[in-house]
Design a protein around this nucleic acid. Structure first.
Lengths: 145, 145
DNA sequence: AGCGAATTCATCCTTTCGGGTGAAGGCTTT
DNA sequence: AAAGCCTTCACCCGAAAGGATGAATTCGCT
């Protein structure tokens, strides 16, 4: 979250700079105000869409590999029984990929503290003490692949 | 999709109307251009974010799939190629079971420092940075079950 | 006997984890 | 409106993990 704001802020600064630059360099004021506003609107719409995408992007990596597999089915009932939320599950997935809390935070666009909260709750719900055990147990319970 | 575009268009129209209205009613031109632009930027950023969310929140289906390897066999050649020693391998195994360094030390009857040395060397040889990654990579390489 | 690898342990230091607590805002249900 | 859960974030603190380096001992092999 903090990172996203920072990036957005930087982009904003750059854009403002560009606008002022254009304003003084090419006398944009001479152009119609509507055109000016339109440009700004378009740019920020795109920026907004980008931010929106970043904030909700979820990489769905499909591992394709042959071999007969006894289909792993997403046991939602099991998740609910343990009271694991969607966000916590996302953290669990990334955790199982070997990412550090900071890396998970960056990927989910939340703060490190948030990830720590989620992981702590995860450990409680999975009744484990460490992330390595959480990964193990999650695999045993077929919560993750 | 279509609905989103329509709503976006309507919102756009309303905004334009509002802007023109403000412009003529309250002489917004007298306000600083920066303020005017800022408002537009903010509004369209929000609109963009909203649109981005609408366009992507359709359905994030997570396709998970397990891939189990046929029979696992101890590939000693692979171990040697990586230069992983017996002791390091033992540490790796216990590590993969979710044990802490201290627990591994107790189980192997060595000191904590020794385990840390082994694990550090393991990380170097497996070219990873954390134990979770080491476990992953070891499984990929079929070094462990 | 000697060389090299493996094993063991240590110290110092930094980073990462994890526990505990509090809190704010959003969303849902009652 | 109130209650409850989810999500987010913050702060503090201690434990665990990891990096760098040095060193002693043992073991296998020539």
């Amino acid at each position: 979250m903090k990172q996203t704001i920072i990036i957005y802020g930087l982009a904003l600064a750059v854009l403002i700079f560009l606008l002022k630059f254009l304003e003084y360099r090419f006398f944009v004021r001479d152009l119609s105000l509507e055109f000016y506003l339109g440009s700004v609107a378009i740019v920020f719409t795109v920026l907004g869409i980008w931010a929106g995408l970043r904030l909700t992007s979820k990489k769905t990596v499909v591992i394709t590999q042959t071999v007969i597999q006894p289909d792993f089915q997403f046991d939602l009932a099991r998740l609910e029984k343990l009271g694991i939320s969607k966000r916590e599950y996302e953290v669990l997935e990334l955790m199982a990929k070997g990412l550090s809390n900071q890396e998970i935070a960056d990927r989910l666009f939340v703060s490190l503290n948030t990830v720590k909260t989620h992981s702590s709750n995860l450990f409680l719900k999975l009744e484990v003490k460490r992330r390595t055990q959480a990964i193990q147990k999650a695999k045993e319970l077929q919560l993750i692949a």
